[in-house]
Design a binder for these strands. Structure first.
Length: 434
RNA sequence: UCCUCGGUAGCUCAACGGUAGAGCAUUCGGCUGUUAACCGAAGGGUUGUAGGUUCGAAUCCUACCCGGGGAGCCA
C-alpha cells in the first residue's frame, strides 16, 4: 500500500493508496459519510459508503470526533465537486487515536476570539489560514536566504547571549549566566556582523532577537526573527539597492509559489504585483514636510509614530525608502552625512498599506576617533566596545548593512492585521504560553 | 508605565435594575452527494474576583485580576 501526501494525491488517480492524518471535519447522512482528512500537506474529502465497509468500521468513522488521528485506505478519484479536485473512496480505515467526546477538540470550524485562539495556539496552527501564513513565512525566509546566498553573502550567525550595552538605549532581557555573571539576549546581531563583514566581505545573520520593550501593539513581539546583511566597502547606496532587490525577490517568490496560500488569506495580489524596482526614495526632510501637509503634528527632529508611517506609505504602491534621519534619533554607530553632519546615513523601508517599517539600516561609522566620541556622547562603557573599536584599528573601511524583520514582512505580504499569526508561537508582552 | 475597550454555557454572542437566552460544539435520533450540510431532541451557568448601593444586581458604584487595541520605543 502506497502512503501518499494529500498535496500530491492527484498523481495517484485511480490507484488505491493510504493517507495518514487527522479528521478535519465530518458530514454524514444515514448510509454515507464524508470525512475530510488533513495530513499537514492538504485536506481531502473522503467518501465512506455503508454498504462498502465492514459495519463496525463505518460506524466508527461515522461517529469519529474532530482531530482524531486516522489512517484511511482507498481509491483516488477525480471529482469535479471536490475542492482539491480529488476524493478518496474509503475501503478501509484505521483509527490511531480517538479524541474523546468528554474533551472535544476546542477549535470548531466556527468563529473564535483572539484570546481563546491564542490560548490554544498549539492547536490553532492546525487550521487552514494558519497553515497559509506559516507556509508563506517559510517561503519568505527561503527567498531571502536564496537571494543573499546567490549574491555573495555568507551566512555567519551571531550570538544570542551578549554582554551588556549592544546598542544602549533599548531594553534588554537579562539572563543569569554562571557564577553571578549577567548576560543579555541579543537585540541585534549588528555589531558582530560588522566584525564578520571585515572577515568575509559580505555576510548576513538570521536568527531570533529580543526586545524587552513593553510594546503592546499589533506590530510588536518580544521575540522576533531578523535577517541582517552587512557589507564591507559599502555605503548607504548599497543598503538601498540590496534591501530593494531582496524585498522584490521575496515578494515575487511568494506570488510565484504561494498563490494558493494567498488565496486562502484572500490577499489582494494586485497590491503585491506592483512591488517592483525602483522604490520611491525620499529624505527625512521631505517626509516631515509631507506629514505636516497631511496634518501630522510631527516636528523636525523627532521620529515617526505609527500613524506617521501609515501617512507616508499610503502615498505609494510599493515600499518607500526614507533616508537621512536626524542623528539624535538614530543609534550611535550611524555615519554622518558629510554634507550635513546633523544627519545620519540611515534608511527605513516603510511597507505599503500601513504595515510600517520592515527594514532599518544604514552606513556605519568607520573612523576610530569619531566612534570613540560617539560612545562618549551616548554615555556607553568604552571597555565593552574594545573589540568593536578594534574593527576601526585594523583595516577600517566604509561599511553598511541593515536588518529586516521577518514577521513584519510576512504580515504585510499576507495582508493580515497582526504580527502574532506569522510565527508559530509568538512571544508578546503578556503572553508567553503556550 | 499611560490611555481606551472588554470579561455571561466548551466557543461566538444576547439580555443593560425584575425568573439567564440563542447559534455553534457535545450526546441521542433521522437522512446516499454533503462541503462552516440540514431536520428533531437532550445535557450544559456561583455572569472574572472581592466588597458596596438596592426590596431585588449579569446590569449601577469601588478596588483588584485577566485579556484586546493604541501611545511611547522599535523590526
Amino acid at each position: 500500500m502506497t502512503r501518499v501526501r494529500i498535496d500530491e494525491i492527484g498523481r495517484h488517480a485511480g490507484e488505491t493508496v493510504e493517507i495518514a492524518g487527522w479528521l478535519y471535519n465530518l458530514r454524514k447522512s444515514g448510509k454515507i459519510a464524508f470525512p475530510q482528512v488533513r495530513d499537514g500537506s492538504g485536506v481531502i474529502q473522503c467518501v465512506a459508503v455503508k454498504a462498502q465497509l465492514p459495519e463496525e468500521k463505518f460506524e466508527a468513522l461515522k461517529h469519529l470526533t474532530q482531530e482524531s488521528s486516522l489512517i484511511v485506505r482507498g481509491k483516488v478519484r477525480a471529482e469535479e465537486r471536490a475542492h482539491g479536485g480529488f476524493e478518496l473512496d474509503v475501503e478501509d480505515v484505521e483509527i490511531v487515536q480517538r479524541v474523546s467526546e468528554e474533551h472535544p477538540y476546542p477549535i470548531t470550524p466556527k468563529e473564535h476570539g483572539v484570546d481563546f485562539l491564542m490560548d490554544n495556539r498549539h492547536l490553532w496552527i492546525r487550521s487552514r489560514k494558519q497553515h497559509a501564513v506559516l507556509r508563506i513565512r517559510a517561503e519568505v525566509i527561503k527567498a531571502v536566504r536564496d537571494y543573499l546566498d546567490s549574491n555573495g553573502f555568507l551566512l555567519v550567525d551571531c550570538p544570542i547571549f551578549t554582554p551588556a550595552a549592544c546598542e544602549g538605549t533599548t531594553t534588554l532581557f537579562e539572563v543569569n549566566y554562571f557564577d553571578d555573571e549577567k548576560v543579555y539576549l541579543t537585540q541585534s546581531g549588528q555589531l558582530y556582523n560588522e566584525a564578520n563583514a571585515m572577515a568575509f566581505g559580505k555576510v548576513y545573520c538570521f536568527g531570533p532577537t529580543f526586545r524587552a520593550e513593553k510594546s503592546k501593539t499589533r506590530r510588536h513581539l518580544t521575540e522576533f526573527w531578523m535577517v541582517e546583511p552587512e557589507m564591507a566597502y559599502a555605503t548607504l547606496e548599497d543598503v538601498k539597492r540590496v534591501g530593494e532587490e531582496m524585498v522584490c525577490f521575496a515578494v515575487d517568490r511568494v506570488l510565484r509559489n504561494r498563490g494558493a496560500e494567498l488565496a486562502v488569506l484572500e490577499r489582494d495580489v494586485a497590491k503585491l504585483e506592483t512591488v517592483k524596482s525602483p522604490f520611491p526614495r525620499i529624505t527625512y526632510d521631505t517626509a516631515v514636510e509631507l506629514l505636516k501637509k497631511k496634518g501630522s503634528t510631527i516636528e523636525w527632529g523627532s521620529d515617526f509614530g505609527g500613524t506617521d508611517e501609515t501617512l507616508i506609505s499610503e502615498e505609494y504602491d510599493r515600499p518607500v525608502i526614507v533616508e537621512k534621519f536626524p542623528q539624535q534619533i538614530k543609534a550611535f554607530y550611524f555615519e554622518s552625512d558629510p554634507e550635513r553632519p546633523e544627519l545620519a546615513l540611515g534608511v527605513d523601508f516603510l511597507a505599503p498599506e500601513g504595515y510600517g517599517e520592515i527594514i532599518g539600516g544604514g552606513q556605519r561609522v568607520h573612523n576610530l576617533e569619531v566612534l570613540e566620541q560617539r560612545l562618549a556622547e551616548h554615555d556607553l562603557p568604552r571597555e565593552a566596545f574594545d573589540w568593536y573599536l578594534d574593527l576601526r584599528r585594523f583595516g577600517a573601511v566604509p561599511h553598511a548593512g541593515f536588518g529586516m524583520g521577518i514577521e513584519r514582512v510576512v504580515t504585510w505580504i499576507c495582508g493580515i492585521d497582526h504580527l502574532r499569526e506569522t510565527i508559530a508561537f509568538p512571544r508578546m508582552l503578556y503572553r508567553t504560553k503556550p
